[in-house]
Write a protein that binds this DNA or RNA. Structure first.
Lengths: 205, 205
DNA sequence: GCAGAAATTGATCGTTCAATCAAATTTCTT
DNA sequence: AAGAAATTTGATTGAACGATCAATTTCTGC
């Protein structure tokens, strides 16, 4: 009837899973906050687990247009896009006073083991994310060392983001996140310097 | 009666929280697997939340003797101890086929927001951990650059560990973890080279 | 060995959980 | 407008949840 009932359920569930976690969120709470009866929810999603998969697919579809797209639009430099992404998450943490963190990361730790049929959908989100970062790193061309493993580096960027968010939430301070980003910056600066030297040397030879 | 009932409850709860998460673990399950009646559990712990705090205090007491101590004993080089710690976690992931991960990290993402009275106990674990790593970094002396922020670097090491574990669990493969550690290694190698050059220069001047 | 404290038993409390379903309503197709 | 399909309603299910407590047993100090 009302246009987008399934979508409203998905987005409400996504928000509640982020705020409270998956297990701690009751189906009845999702229904109440989405303004839907439980029968409606189970008409679109056969189980709570299926709803979780739906939420992860929703993220899969919306991560790029909602996060990566704006970043690429605002920051043309492929290397700086990495730090723009980290800054985007930082601003979220500022807005939420170090709460919530990353919806995919939270679910990754909560359900990867216990819901083997859900885990691949979490993985896809990470993989898509890393692929976009890897594209940036390739775009940087010879500004980065030729022998840099850009696939490994893309995973590393996600690692720094997720690990930094985790410690920020645990400490209720952005310090550990900023510390981690600063170290990543130092690492990248070193890579750029080495890329520069390689490039110069190669060009002059 | 039986010596160590409270301890048995603590360790059973710690294991189940690690395997299933906090919310997904029922008190009745903890009781059954610990061989204890619910009344006994509530004799020692006034609530499930209090039991969680007890588990975190248990980790706080046992992390050093169970993890950091053996690593320091096996690896004398302070810088290599960082990678020995990462290797220790890696071996755990191999043994569990990329499951479980870090008990503190899992709880950090699950309960930091929803249980504000628990969060500080998670933080203490991270802080103690980072302090130990920071001590290693100071022990490395002038092998590392003088201007390296060793406190920030210690947070960074934890970040790499936790972020790597997260992606390894999500992908059911050690690849992302190994990738992240490899990048950290490259960063540290760069730091050591810079420390060496500073040291040499300083000594010759 | 006795008294008091500590620990344990196990049934039970009310609540919330995920999930179901027949009936009613709305939307879509023609 | 009519009939079919899709959606929504809302009460209800049995199971599991965290927690309680009087009664019993075991341990401890004297």
């Amino acid at each position: 009837m009302a246009p987008g009932t399934a979508d409203r359920i998905l987005q409400t569930a996504a928000r509640l899973f982020l705020e409270q976690g998956y297990s701690a969120t009751g189906v009845s709470t999702i229904c109440r906050e989405a303004g839907v009866n439980s029968g409606s929810l189970y008409h679109f999603f056969p189980s709570k687990d299926a709803l979780l998969v739906g939420v992860l697919k929703w993220y899969e579809e919306h991560l790029d247009p909602l996060v990566m797209g704006p970043i690429e639009k605002a920051e043309p430099d492929p290397v700086e896009r990495i730090f723009a992404l980290l800054a985007w998450y930082r601003s979220n943490m500022v807005a939420t006073e170090c709460r919530l963190g990353c919806p995919i990361g939270n679910l990754a730790l909560e359900v990867s083991d216990t819901h083997p049929e859900v885990r691949p959908h979490i993985d896809v989100n990470f993989v898509n994310w890393a692929a976009r970062i890897e594209a940036w790193l390739h775009e940087a061309g010879d500004r980065l060392p030729a022998d840099l493993d850009r696939r490994a580096m893309s995973k590393f960027v996600l690692t720094v983001m997720e690990g930094g968010l985790m410690q920020a939430r645990a400490s209720d301070e952005l310090g550990p996140f900023d510390d981690s980003v600063a170290q990543l910056r130092a690492y990248v600066d070193g890579l750029l310097a080495r890329g520069q030297s390689q490039h110069t040397t190669g060009a002059t030879a």
